[in-house]
Amino acid sequence: MRGLGKSYPAVKGRRGAPGTPAVRATDGVELAVRRGEVFGLLGPNGAGKSTLVRQLTGLLRPDTGSVEILGHDIVRYPERAARLLAYLGQESSALDELTVSLAAETTGRLRGLEVTRARAERDAVLEELGLTPIAGRPLKKLSGGQRRLACLAAALVGERPLLVLDEPTTGMDPVARRAVWAAVDRRRAERGTTVLLVTHNVIEAETVLDRVAVLDQGRVIACDTPAGLKEQVAGEVRVELVWRERAPLEVPEVTALRERAVESGRRWTLRLAPEEARAVVATVTGGAAFAALDDFTLATPSLEDVYLALGGAARQGLVKA
């Protein structure tokens, strides 16, 4: 991380999708991403992540607010976004029928590189991501993960100080994932590249992100380091109980637990203070309840729990005041 400061996308957007004017995909979002940081956007489907990214990359004009990237006003000069950032979208349809090698080279050339430079960078990036053996194959014929990796290769050809990656590792095997994060880390270490990452994958988010913003219904409901966010629910542990057939509601302690549990079939999920959790475990592992218990787990909070706990109106009762 380099200094304080700045790649600085502060977005205040409001966007009514055409035809459904009541929808605000991003609603007064304000974020500041520091230079050289791997910053994550986490949120459920429809939270406004993609809209936010489209506003950031100059693809969508925000109705209100401003976006500033590395000192450039993107709302006023949206065409500058393309010269500051590389964007990996979720769609590969523009590259699908090209070979991996040509996709990377063409993208490099369209990013303003000379032919020889584009080819040199293409070779280096393909080698780095382990794509050289399949360089001659069309993207269409590759598996989902390989195709994603090839698109990432295209995004990395032609140096950019900001990478905007929308779910880059979807469908990838662990080897490919590692190659992705190694490539991202190298760029950050060597060139101070800033990375903005959109993700669903909370486990990955926990390991690679410096900071994360949780989006819900177009608003930022939390923004901190993964550890900082976890501290917000640190007082709680998660207890999961799986009953054999049904919950033994004849046991009064179990009946009392029911109103605090999130039920999903035979599975109950509870968020409890540690001493309560101990009591619950003692209850269900002894006596009448134990006969009905199939399995149980006790876990410290993960980003997943934060994500759920902060998840907004749909999960009322889970939000810790």
């Binding site: 590395l70 000192g71 280096a124």
Partner: peptide, 28 residues
């Protein structure tokens, strides 16, 4: 492994303070 000469890197020098922040060089 991707090789890029240092002089083309915007923000190659660590940005130090808020006031020192300048606009990054645009790519070609």
């Amino acid at each position: 492994m991707s090789v890029v000469p240092a002089e083309v890197l915007p923000g190659g020098a660590p940005a130090v303070t808020e006031t020192a922040r300048g606009a990054a060089e645009l790519g070609p």
